[in-house]
């Protein structure tokens, strides 16, 4: 069943200007001033210090997060992460497992969800169901474009803080964002993504799974805009950018996942050409391997950090 599913490669849906579009965005990200603001925060961790940090997105929105670092000596690497759809970065203690194996952590709030990050850009599109429809008809201003470029800005933040080793980690929405940012900007040493979103988006919209249900609802109201919507979504589809990933990738899926179905991730996974591993949980849904998988990730990253010294 797994092998059968993994052969579902699916067609790429790239527009002709896909690479130009993203190369332009990457250039903007690389040229953007970080305009960082740090605020020391009290934290009861024994070996870590915490700053609330904000970095400006391309449109000037302060993207807010935690910067957790070891003291008196820094961590051996920096792990960048964020949260699942509609959630928030939570408290610094939420990342204690990563710091326990020697990583410093940057964890940020995705725009307009339950955290502190807002949205400074004009909103011209519909708001049906959730934020995934915001500015849906224009790839330059579409909600997901900001999420992808914000994640790239976080990689820049990690680099600018002096880290030579950067690991991206995330689940669901966050897994998709990490794979996208790792593919587009690169400059990372490992990507860990669980039950990732944002792959094979056309089919996900047709089935109305997870956060993309709102786009299905939009198209039920405006069926004449399907072509336009699918064209915009193609710029953000992991299956169209997975071949740009150079870092090793460690992924997981739940074969009963109805939110980010495994079969929609395979078209992206199959196009990753860097060293990769996919762990399938046949009896699990969107929770994937949960804590059991987290332990595998911890073992993997602990060994990786030892290996790089």
């Amino acid at each position: 069943m797994i092998i059968e599913a993994m052969s579902l490669v699916g067609e790429q849906t790239k527009s002709d200007d896909f690479d130009d579009f993203w190369n332009r965005q990457i250039q903007l990200v690389q040229g953007k001033e970080l305009n960082t603001h740090f605020q020391p925060t009290t934290f009861s961790g024994q070996k870590e210090k915490v700053f609330k940090v904000s970095v400006e997105g391309l449109d000037g929105t302060p993207v807010i997060g935690w910067y957790i670092h070891h003291s008196p000596k820094p961590g051996k690497g920096c792990l960048i992460t964020t949260h699942g759809f509609k959630s928030s970065r939570k408290s610094p203690s939420h990342y204690a497992h990563w710091t326990s194996i020697g990583y410093d952590v940057i964890a940020f709030d995705v725009r307009l969800q339950s955290g502190e990050t807002g949205f400074n850009s004009p909103i011209s599109g519909p708001l049906i169901g959730n934020v995934c429809t915001l500015n849906l008809l224009d790839e330059e201003s579409y909600y997901l474009k900001h999420l992808y470029t914000d994640t790239m800005m976080m990689i820049r933040l990690g680099k600018s803080l002096g880290y030579s080793t950067i690991v991206l980690e995330g689940t669901s929405q966050a897994g998709g964002l990490m794979l996208a940012a790792g593919a587009l900007l690169g400059q990372v040493n490992y990507i860990l993504a669980n039950v990732p979103s944002f792959s094979d988006m056309e089919n996900r919209v047709r089935k109305g799974t997870g956060s993309l249900k709102s786009i299905q609802t939009y198209l039920s109201i405006h069926p004449d805009r399907e072509k336009e919507v699918m064209r915009v979504l193609s710029y953000f589809d992991l299956k169209n950018m997975a071949d740009r990933i150079h870092a090793p990738v460690y992924c997981s899926v739940g074969l009963l996942d109805q939110t980010c179905p495994a079969e929609n991730f395979y078209p992206a996974y199959s196009r990753i050409t860097s060293p990769k591993q996919l762990v399938c949980y046949p009896y699990n849904g969107h929770e994937g391997g949960s804590d059991l998988h987290k332990e595998k990730e911890l073992a993997l990253l602990a060994a990786f950090i030892e290996q790089i010294g």
């Binding site: 603001h37 605020q39 700053f51 940090v53 670092h69 003291s71 008196p72 002096g162």
Partner: peptide
């Protein structure tokens, strides 16, 4: 001066 202090913290780590 939280920004300068944070740079100081990173510096101390190095």
């Amino acid at each position: 001066y939280p920004n300068e202090f944070c740079v100081g913290e990173i510096a101390v780590g190095l």
